[in-house]
Nucleic acid binder design. Structure first.
Lengths: 196, 196, 196, 196
DNA sequence: CATGAATGAGTTTTCATTCAT
DNA sequence: GATGAATGAAAACTCATTCAT
């Protein structure tokens, strides 16, 4: 394997290690040694692949966002041709988001962690801003395939994203009985599609 | 001043100091000395008034929740008599929530901080669960004054709370231009009231 | 009650509180608040009755030694007249020492604590020196009632005291099976009496 | 020097530093910084080589016991062949114990420190139990070479060890004039050998 | 006399980072 | 490139003692 790819491989390992660590402990309480041990890499070497602990985090956030972006795009690619009715396709897309993103508890946990860091760290904040802005725009474009009203689409896309975000939060901390997240999402989805 | 109230006064001071600190730094990066300095209290004394740093946090969360609960209840008390139409009253209540809670940026920041801690700390998680369950129930009762459909009310209350939570998150990090939070909330509010 | 006796009463309470505390924790790990709480006295008041934590300890050591000295002397007083044969009386005295002192586990623990402090604290060391010197002299006088040989008596008294001290140590830490302290003491006692 | 031996070297240094420190101050009053300074090692590094302060102590106790065990065994090795009469050999062995162990004041001090810690710390207690049980067994085996009576040997070995322990205590705190430890030990030794 | 609030030095421990090998 | 030894700042927490009320 070339140097380049050894480097890339190691960085990938470290990203995945941080991902695992964040499921256990907040970033602040995760030590460089924890990450190294999880990645099965010498802890001194982390500073060879990344400048600092913050640098690891910043790269991780990009990695995570990229991962889910391409995950969603791949799904779009492989499903867009199979459905004729744009409304059906929108419904299927929303279903995908619900199950793979909104109700993905690990992901939700990690996103809260990132939101929290973003509040006090402007570099992280920027990355999060960019990601959510793009995400809302993606939703917007999807809606525009079903309605011609730009104002409505813009507003709905923000509202929908916000609603998903809130459900994602609730589904981690509240009892499933209290929120019945799945059914609730389904209900709102139908109302929303009717509305268009 | 009596001993009893010195005690209470100091604890109050400490709560407010932590509040200020959390607007600047995450809890983990806020040292006991930071809190003490902000409260203008000797740092050793913090362990006189509270058992540990975690104890301060737990008390703070209760204090914060209690503060906003009574804030909301007071508003209800002083406005419930002035409005005849329950729908008007619901609209006014929602307006109050939007402006004083959902779009209160300081509060939103601190709540994200608490959410994050809750993920890894079960005591904090319990407190948050209780607070949100009560909050959703409050919203539910308000809705039940306007509709007789219990299932709808239950689901709407969770959905509304989640939507507010999401908007609250977005309003801290995203550009006001992107989300136009105020107008968005207003729009959804009207749709929502029409729906009932 | 007069002031004098209130003062004396409180000091007595504190001595007994320290005694209880030392059965739980070493002196260094016993805080002034622990002692005060055990004595059911305000912790600030301890400095009214004693100058410092060390002062409490010094007084306690004297109190403890005095207590066991008079305990032993009272026994001597009430039993000396009932026995004619000095050898029988010596045997009975040794029995008393074995059961009430050497094999008194609480006392042994506290004495190890005091020995340890004495090594590094000259004031405590002095008190311990005095107490053991007197103790050895008491044993010496008892032996002299049975033998006329002064050199033998002097040497035996030190040896006997040392042996008791060692058994006292062993009986706290080693299994009763390993040392069979009671039987061992009895055995040696008989050898010792035969020897005289 | 290899990494492996740097590790071992440092641990050794730390053990010796604690040994020196314990001659000055009790363990509780010896700070991690004191030990580090004595070992001429950075204080943060102590936690690199040992888990905690208690871990250092536990390792030290093992190190100390091991040191004296092998010290004694080496002496046995090099002297066992030169003496024909087992009684002479026993006498010589006891002489060795008297001078190198019982009357070794530094060692006695440190052992009192360890005894004291053992009372309140079960891990230390275990180590001490094991060490003394082995020690008594060693003495027992030595006596069995001179007498066939197992019960006597067992009892004598405990008694002898206890006596030495007591003399060791006394020799630290009492005046040499009062106890004449050397002569006393010699006397008892002869009585003891006669007895066998 | 009694109370308990306040002080701040001191403790153990953690950890990102550096750097010699 | 890889390793792990070393550094020292900073954290939470404890506590004897003082002193105003």
């Amino acid at each position: 394997m070339s140097r380049r790819s050894v480097q890339a491989e190691r960085r990938q390992q470290i990203m995945e290690a941080l991902h695992k660590c964040l499921l256990e402990k907040p970033f602040d309480q995760t030590s460089i040694k924890d990450i190294a041990a999880t990645a099965q890499i010498n802890y001194g070497a982390l500073h060879y692949y990344f400048e600092s602990k913050e640098d690891i985090l910043l790269n991780y956030i990009e990695y995570l966002i990229e991962r889910y972006k391409s995950f969603f795009e791949e799904w779009i690619q492989s499903n867009s041709s199979s459905m004729q009715d744009p409304k059906d396709f929108l419904r299927a897309s929303i279903d995908f988001v619900h199950h793979k993103i909104t109700l993905n508890q690990d992901l939700s946990k990690i996103f809260i962690e990132i939101w929290e860091i973003a509040i006090y760290n402007s570099k992280v904040k920027e990355k999060l801003q960019k990601a959510y802005t793009e995400w809302i725009e993606t939703v917007n474009l999807a809606i525009l395939k079903v309605t011609a009203n730009k104002t409505t689409a813009a507003r709905l896309s923000v509202g929908l994203a916000a609603f998903w975000e809130g459900i994602s939060l609730f589904s981690i901390i509240l009892d499933e009985k209290t929120i019945e997240a799945g059914a609730l999402l389904k209900d709102f989805q139908e109302q929303f599609l009717k509305f268009l």
